[in-house]
């Protein structure tokens, strides 16, 4: 019979699945914006793990770490979208396959 509350393993398995989905999306998709969204997905999966362990180990440090991850993610998105905008100004598209100038 099921326990009255989901065990921490349930949250951790869900977090692993979300992380894998984000990784697959990052590898498959070629639109730079959607690749950023997949990175956000992976960051959120990791945040879920942090909160689960914060509850399990009775330590508020996990939740504070999630707060810092949020801040870094926001900064990363701002700079990343700035790069996408400036690439788009020059190249008229934001597909990762077309940005192959450094290829030999």
């Amino acid at each position: 019979m099921l326990a009255s509350a989901p065990p921490p393993e349930a949250y951790l398995v869900l977090s692993a699945l979300l992380f894998a989905a984000g990784a697959v999306g990052l590898l498959v998709r070629r639109n730079a914006l959607i690749m950023f969204m997949c990175i956000e997905l992976m960051l959120n999966a990791v945040n879920l793990t942090f909160v689960t362990y914060a509850r399990e180990l009775d330590d508020l440090g996990g939740q504070v770490t999630v707060f810092f991850v949020l801040v870094v993610a926001a900064a990363e998105v701002v700079v990343g979208l700035g790069i996408v905008v400036s690439i788009f100004r020059r190249r008229r598209n934001a597909t990762a396959d077309d940005l192959s100038l450094l290829k030999g």
């Binding site: 398995v13 692993a16 399990e56 180990l57 330590d59 508020l60």
Partner: peptide
Amino acid sequence: LIFVVVAGAITGATSSAAPI
């Protein structure tokens, strides 16, 4: 990841610095 979660146990000391 799922193998690690299922096969391993959650270890680590409970917090002394910032308990909930």
